[in-house]
């Protein structure tokens, strides 16, 4: 199927990506058009699957056929890494990740 600018904007919003704009500045129209056209072309290629004989075929989401036994329900003993993990955050306050106001 063909993708128009509105479709592409909706997808970008779901994906939490900007669509051609930089740091909130509106995208250059030529660049935006190129991005939408490219996306549309990629999606259109995927329509080749319309020819695949999949009637009644069970989807395959993983190639793994072995049983996946759960681990013993015991707490991990090699944790205690909260500080190291929080230390990766761009901004933290004490033992919390810090983000801007939501409302």
């Amino acid at each position: 199927m063909a993708i128009n600018e509105n479709d592409a904007r909706a997808v970008a919003n779901l994906a939490r990506l900007e669509l051609g704009e930089t740091a909130g500045q509106v995208a250059d129209p030529a660049r935006l058009k190129a991005l939408v056209d490219e996306f549309s072309k990629i999606v259109a290629y995927m329509d080749i699957l319309n020819g695949a004989p999949t009637e009644g075929v069970e989807p395959l989401y993983s190639p793994m056929t072995d049983p996946l036994p759960p681990r013993a329900d015991e707490p991990a003993r090699d944790g205690q890494k909260a500080d190291e993990l929080l230390g990766q955050a761009p901004e933290r306050v004490g033992r919390y990740f810090s983000v801007p106001r939501i409302f």
Partner: peptide, 18 residues
């Protein structure tokens, strides 16, 4: 938020993600 780089400018949360 949890790791990696954060955009400058302190926008609201969804804009920060994007």
């Amino acid at each position: 938020v949890r790791y990696g780089q954060r955009a400058e400018g302190d926008p609201e949360l969804v804009a920060l993600y994007r």
